[in-house]
Design a protein around this nucleic acid. Structure first.
Lengths: 335, 335
DNA sequence: GCAGCATTTGCACACGCTTGCAAAAAGGCG
DNA sequence: CGCCTTTTTGCAAGCGTGTGCAAATGCTGC
């Protein structure tokens, strides 16, 4: 019934009394078209409600304008903040984001990348998991770019954006020690993501350098509930930690809540806590969490600006390492 | 350099020794293809890394498989939860989500819908703002479906999914009264979204029915900071409220934090608080917020299943009203 | 083996667009 | 006004698919 198709360039051309190429050129930046035909076309297009068919355009130009965001746990504060920044940046440069949800199952990311190929996405930005090499090679071979955010990996081709996780972890270790803490602990999830492991590694190493041994506890996924569970493990030890660095703000929130409400431990008087990500909740007055800020806007800008670069530019500069600023609040004594 | 195009059906056909239509039919469900040619095609496709070009397919079939999610403030807990549910559901039915960020500026949603038209999206799901009628008409005329979530509107055509906001507000009013509260207040934002206003209306009306007048305060956007600001207004009144219904969980969190940490008011002993949305943070032990659950999964299912329905089915059933369950926690006395 | 039928296959056109190429128009200049 | 240069315009080919149609193939039952 309403299957009367969208209005095409042909119809616009007829109404404007010009050729179909003229209307095409009107909507192609940098094409040669005289001001008055251009105006005629624009008028006709407006009257008819014409919009360039980007499917067809993508087919011809071999460039769809689509960028795939591949991400799991979309609902999580840090992830959604990053998605917001990325979609924003993409829109600013005339591109558009496709969002693909992955789960923890193996091959989930591969499936997502296949979808990206089907829609001939210009690029894929991967925030979760790590695809099989055969798939990324396929993407790259076909001119599709790949950006890996916070998934350290040494393969060539993709742009890799990472933070100085290890260094940040070292900084927080010294901050703990300076606050008078001696029994350090690290709360992690079992996810085993490269960046999470880097934080763990860096923290343990730095503590050891300061002459301290770190108790490491890992549990479940990177969420509030896991934070509570880890608190259960850490705060019932004979030698109770007096400082805990959590791999994630969500873990930290769960851990703080458990410490305060379940174990009646005062933060920061009896226990210092730090997190990572600087999610919005970290600044809420119930937490006032000292944490490291993920520079989401800078990350997004780096990713998107690389996508708009010419293919030939800087083939080497494929790895970006950004600095995570320490945001000092009151979950650590002193300061 | 890597501009060697993607592999096409033509190449697969040649390698498999069949016609191009055969490979097309192999990837078209319900097409007539003998098992053995099918297998030959699949083998060749796999070897070559062939993937159907969905741009071209969309062009032919006049059905892209793309669904646009148009949403502002993506990073917000409730929004991102809904996005998660929607993308999930869409993927389950073989569709894919495009995500478009809108801001508060007028015409932002219109621009997004134009983008949806350009990519010939099969449908648009609008979570924020309300587009101009001329645009939605254009979409509808071209067979693009529209779903409006929580933006009550009486125009015909789109599927409208709403909650029983007014009724929920009435229920919480009686809950407050039953808990012994008498000085009721409503904390809202200045956004003026239909559903927010419905909650306000319902609360005020129900309270009046119970013989109580409600103090209404509105501030800024629907976020944590606004909650703090509203607390400032409400908790410094001579007649301090003993129960506050917040239009949003984020408002409630901000308000509770301000009440406890800034005004040293105990919740729920001296002040009962309720929210709306049941975001994850509402269940955190620092808040334990009594609130109404947005049934995001049901909303998503309703939206997506309607999209997969035949055009002709139930032309009338274009409005879905869902029930918001009251999630009872400990920010209200008793229970 | 052959007529009759169902199934499979290939051809060719269509989808809406971009773009190289050559023709046409416009503009500059003496 | 005529010649030359620059800009504009239309034509037509092609991008990678789906699909109606007719020819070809396979199968069944005599």
């Amino acid at each position: 019934m309403s299957q009367k198709l969208f209005v095409s360039a042909q119809e616009v051309a007829e109404r404007a009394g010009v050729s179909r190429s003229a209307v095409s050129r009107t909507f192609t930046s940098g094409a040669s078209v005289s001001p008055k035909t251009r105006q005629k076309v624009l008028d006709a297009a407006d009257a008819l409600g014409y919009h360039v068919n980007h499917l067809a355009r993508g087919l011809m130009r071999n460039e769809s304008g689509i960028v795939c965001l591949i991400v799991s746990e979309i609902g999580t504060p840090y992830r959604s903040a990053l998605i917001r920044a990325l979609t924003q940046q993409l829109q600013n440069t005339g591109k558009i984001a496709m969002l693909i949800n992955t789960d923890r199952s193996d091959g989930s990311v591969d499936l997502a990348l296949r979808q990206a190929i089907r829609y001939r996405a210009d690029a894929s930005i991967i925030l979760s998991g790590l695809p099989d090499k055969s798939i990324t090679d396929l993407c790259l071979k076909n001119g599709q770019r790949i950006v890996l955010i916070n998934r350290d990996d040494d393969r060539e081709g993709p742009l890799r954006i990472n933070l100085d996780d290890e260094d940040a972890a070292a900084r927080i270790a010294t901050a703990f020690v300076r606050a008078g803490c001696r029994r350090l602990a690290f709360a992690n999830s079992q996810a085993g993501t490269p960046s999470l492991m880097a934080r763990e590694r860096g923290f343990v190493a730095a503590a050891r350098g300061l002459g301290l041994e770190v108790v490491v506890e890992r549990f479940g996924h990177t969420g509030y509930e896991s934070g509570r569970a880890v608190a259960q493990q850490l705060l019932t030890r004979k030698e109770r930690p007096d400082a805990i660095f959590c791999a994630t703000d969500l873990l930290a929130c769960g851990l703080m809540d458990a410490a305060r409400h379940q174990f009646s431990i005062s933060v920061p008087d009896q226990l210092c806590v730090a997190g990572f990500d600087d999610i919005e909740q970290a600044s809420w007055s119930s937490y006032q969490l000292t944490t490291f800020a993920q520079p989401v806007d800078i990350i997004a800008r780096a990713a998107v600006s690389w996508l708009s670069q010419e293919t030939e530019a800087q083939p080497e500069n494929r790895s970006v390492r950004l600095h995570a600023d320490l945001v000092w609040r009151s979950s650590i004594r002193g300061g």
